[in-house]
Design a protein around this nucleic acid. Structure first.
Length: 866
RNA sequence: GCCCCAGUGGCGGAACGGUAGACGCGUCAGACUCAAAAUCUGAUAUCUGCAAGGGUGUGGGGGUUCGAGUCCCUCCUGGGGCACCA
């Protein structure tokens, strides 16, 4: 055995061994329980970043661990290859997005391979390939047929200078990122998927996902946002015609406190009132300007303007003024709300601003109402009763809502209704680098779906966008076509699909990746659902919800049998690093990569950062997610070259639990490397000492030998639990490190001692193999095994090694630690209590006080309450 | 603004209501070396004490419990998401 640990040779050798025997190619072996281990596929941005390394190492550890547990493991990989960055790169470099993307994929695939991941590359999926996206198109057409897909108008960010639609990301402070022009909202026709039709099921089924983090389920439930309330109408007359203004409210109990109604700027009533009212028309225009982003809308100043119209309160018959409010969303409910300033905070501030009356109709015991300042209890529903509400006075929230809903129903103006926050999913994007929507617009026949036998509608791969609109629209070879229905010249749809479509079913395609005739086949029934899905917390809502929806749509089309695609979910935390920058007097902030920066400590002990290239200081921007924009990423390539994939993997697993954010640390990497070299050295020295004699008889072991063997098996129990049940890896690594520390101190060179060392090292190599597979592959051979480690099973614990004769008990007096005693295992509670009370330290602390209570936790502690 | 999560030594973190700080990093001391690096050994929350020991301590405040870093309420700070970044 070689004395030096040489990661490059060891890793190349192990990877060649796995590749040469195709050990990770998965087949549908029905005799074994399957394990589908899936990591979120990467966007091919150019190079792998640390977030990827973390994500894929977690997946790989679980995949390899489950393989050792006897499961038939599938771990596939692919590319989320459509998207905006390719268009941005094209604009910057003049290279077509297709070439940029495929070059990136080739490079990143080499990087992934160098990490030694147990991936079945035969199932690789690339979403920008026609082999994949033709099925997006095919599935979209099925959704059109079943009514899941439909067309309506939607709001987009419009850059009036570039004449193009902007992504939210491209809008900075309300202006276009390239032109600096004020962004406008614009309504255009788009295709939508009826996810709201599945809202009930998507919400209810969260209860069937105990393997998901509670917080993700909560976020999804809030996103779907089911609320039960009352929908009712305020009657009014317009041009001699009787109409109603419908609103939805969860607070029908406050209906007697209505002093105004507010409608969205896009509401028909607003448009009507604006005719002949230039000031109102201007206000409505102003509301329609600006952002379409919820985060910005929610923070802008609440503004409104009266329409001059009045509606009638359905219960009091009083006239109620109608306002236009910029805080009313057309997309939610009816696009109109009843205004109850006394009991809704937004309405309160609105009413205060515009001098509208505030009428208290809810009271709470011990609280007094004043209309000059908002108090949180005004919005309470518990412990409140109605006042100033006529026949409803004295009723609680629920009773009042029920009574008022019933009365509105009798009047024929309202009823209880379930309202969802969830909106239908708009999938049209006015962009080039995406999956073409398979529709042809014909002057005679209208919107005609492309027939299945003409799929895929192939995206031309040689265009270079210039930022002014979708280049597809300027490409006659793409746009001009014959109508599939009448054959006359027609125009092809130039919108492409949201890239979330691509990622909503790729995990199904992996199971049937080579099928050119169908999107999925019965192999999907074998592999699905995904047993373990691993990805960033930033996908907690959208991607995961869309995937759950899409899977159900495919189920209802008879294509798959599962309801839920992902049985267990692990949301890994972000990878963070230091941020350094300079802010020139004019121009934009310049960020420097931490590798370009040197930290110096001056005479006074103050630390300061300097740029290596010019020696001048840079400012510290704290710590943040590794990102291109902050230029604080670390290239995994350099790490792998310098220290090897095993070190990179070990550091990632050891530095933090998987769900927490992870701070990058060069010194932490050094520590991981040091441990790997220690492991190598321990095996080297053991092997160099010659062959291990026979076997040892357990009952002949000395106390010290028994202690070591117990620790070996205790570590095995802990690591098995951490990897299997708890899914935390940092503590598993720590336990093995402790064992290695103990092994260092175990200098016994007798025959049983050497035998124990052999056993300990074998267990360590097996336990660490999911995390650092390359070095373990090599060490397993060196420890004298003919077969390869990849074919080994996870070791079993030896119960006899774990047996103990005595156990330490912690003694507390009034909850404070005061001493310890050692008692025999299985000592009775009474004996332990007696021993505890007889302990000198306990006696000293309870002296003179009557003992009120003694709590005994068997095998752990005694707490004396005095 | 709304929804979700996290705050523990100099740092990353451990503690699955029961010994706070495992393990690693860093620092300090020692060994080896002409020297340095590497490696190895030991110490390392804080205050008090010669020591044994004792006090304090898990972002702030309050609560539940024999016992709270852990559960509940509230506030502060940081992070993620908010529907066209992926």
């Amino acid at each position: 055995m070689q004395e030096r640990y040489e990661h490059a040779a060891i890793e190349a050798d192990a990877q060649a061994w796995w590749d040469g025997r195709r050990v990770f190619a998965a087949t549908e072996d029905r005799s074994r329980p399957k394990y589908y281990c899936l990591s979120m596929f990467p966007y091919p941005s150019g190079r792998l970043h640390m977030g990827h390394v973390r994500n894929y190492t977690i997946g790989d550890v679980l995949a390899r661990f489950m393989r050792m547990q006897g499961r038939n493991v599938l771990q596939p990989m692919g590319w989320d290859a459509f998207g905006l960055p390719a268009e941005n790169a094209a604009m910057a470099n003049g290279v077509p997005p297709a070439r940029w993307t495929y070059d990136n994929i080739a490079y990143m695939k080499r990087q992934l391979k160098s990490l030694g991941l147990a991936i079945d590359w035969d199932r690789e999926v690339t979403t920008c390939s026609p082999d994949y996206y033709r099925w997006n198109q095919w599935l979209f057409l099925r959704m059109l047929e079943t009514g899941v897909a439909y067309k309506k108008t939607g709001v987009v960010n419009w850059d009036p200078v570039d004449q193009t639609v902007l992504a939210n990301e491209q809008v900075i402070d309300g202006r276009g990122w390239r032109t600096g022009a004020l962004v406008e909202k614009r309504e255009i026709p788009m295709y939508y998927l009826r996810i709201t039709q599945y809202a009930d099921e998507l919400l209810a089924a969260l209860a069937t996902l105990p393997g998901w983090p509670e917080r993700v389920r909560t976020m999804q439930a809030n996103w779907i946002g089911k609320s039960v309330g009352v929908r009712f109408g305020f009657p009014y007359e317009l041009g001699g015609e009787r109409r109603v203004l419908n609103v939805f409210t969860t607070r029908a109990d406050t209906i007697m406190g209505v002093t105004f109604c507010a409608v969205a700027a896009e509401h028909p009533l607003a448009a009507h009132a604006a005719r002949g009212n230039p000031a109102l028309a201007a206000f409505i225009e102003e509301c329609k300007q600006g952002t379409a982003m919820e985060a910005e809308l929610a923070q802008q100043e609440k503004k409104g303007m009266p329409t001059g119209l009045f509606v009638t309160h359905p219960l009091t018959q009083q006239p109620v003024p109608v306002w236009v409010g910029n805080y009313v969303l057309m997309g939610y409910g009816e696009g109109a709300v009843m205004g109850v300033p006394a009991h809704d905070e937004r309405d309160f501030h609105f009413a205060r601003t515009y001098g509208l009356p505030i009428r208290q109709v809810i009271q709470k015991a011990g609280q007094s109402f004043a209309d000059d300042a908002w108090q949180p209890w005004y919005g309470d529903v518990e412990g409140t009763t109605c006042i100033h509400s006529g026949k409803y006075d004295g009723l609680g929230h629920e009773q009042a809502v029920a009574a008022i809903a019933a009365d509105l129903k009798v009047l024929g103006v309202g009823d209880t209704q379930v309202q969802w926050r969830l909106r239908d999913w708009g999938i049209s994007r006015q962009r080039y680098w995406g999956c073409p929507i398979p529709i042809v617009h014909c002057a005679g026949c209208g919107d005609v779906p492309v027939p299945d036998d003409q799929l895929p509608v192939v995206l031309p791969d040689n265009l270079v966008p210039d930022g002014s609109g979708n280049p597809l629209g300027k490409t006659p070879a793409f746009v001009d076509c014959a109508c599939p229905s009448c054959g006359k010249p027609a125009r092809r749809e130039t919108d492409t699909m949201d890239t979330f479509v691509d990622s909503s079913w790729y995990f199904l395609r992996y199971a049937s990746a080579d099928n050119a005739r169908a999107a999925v086949d019965d192999r999907a029934d074998y592999w699905l659902p995904v047993d373990q899905y691993i990805g960033g917390i930033e996908h907690a809502i959208l991607h995961l919800l869309y995937s759950r929806f899409w899977t159900r749509v495919m189920r209802d089309l008879g294509l798959v049998k599962v309801d839920e695609p992902f049985q267990n979910l692990l949301t890994q935390g972000m990878v963070l690093n230091d941020i350094y920058f300079r802010k020139p007097a004019t121009g934009r902030i310049v960020y420097f990569n931490p590798t370009e920066v040197e930290i110096k400590t001056d005479a006074a002990g103050q630390q300061a950062a300097f740029l290596k290239s010019d020696g001048a200081p840079v400012e510290s921007g704290g710590i943040g997610t590794m990102s291109k924009s902050k230029n604080n990423g670390v290239d995994p390539q350099l790490l792998v070259e310098q220290f090897g994939a095993d070190t990179a993997r070990l550091f990632m697993m050891f530095a933090a639990p998987p769900e927490q954010s992870l701070e990058w640390s060069d010194q932490g990497v050094q520590g991981a490397y040091r441990f790997i070299r220690r492991l190598w050295k321990a095996v080297y020295e053991h092997v160099a000492a010659g062959a291990v004699p026979g076997t040892a008889t357990m009952d002949a072991l000395t106390g010290e030998q028994r202690t070591l063997r117990r620790q070996v098996h205790q570590t095995l129990v802990k690591v098995t639990d951490d990897l299997g049940r708890r899914r935390v890896f940092n503590t598993a690594v720590a336990a093995v490190m402790e064992l290695m520390n103990a092994l260092d101190k175990f200098t016994d060179t007798t025959a049983p001692g050497r035998w124990l060392r052999q056993e300990a090292l074998e267990k360590v190599v097996l336990m660490l193999s999911p995390i650092v597979p390359h070095i373990c592959h090599a060490l397993w051979r060196e420890l004298g095994h003919e077969g390869a480690l990849i074919d080994e099973r996870w070791p079993e614990r030896d119960a006899s090694a774990l047996a103990q004769e005595s156990v330490e008990i912690v003694l507390q007096v009034n909850g404070k630690l005061r001493g310890r005693i050692v008692v025999p295992v299985g000592a009775s509670e009474a004996d332990v209590k007696e021993a505890a009370l007889a302990d000198p330290a306990v006696m000293r602390w309870v002296e003179g006080k009557p003992i009120r209570k003694v709590i005994v936790v068997p095998g752990k502690l005694v707490n004396v309450v005095a």
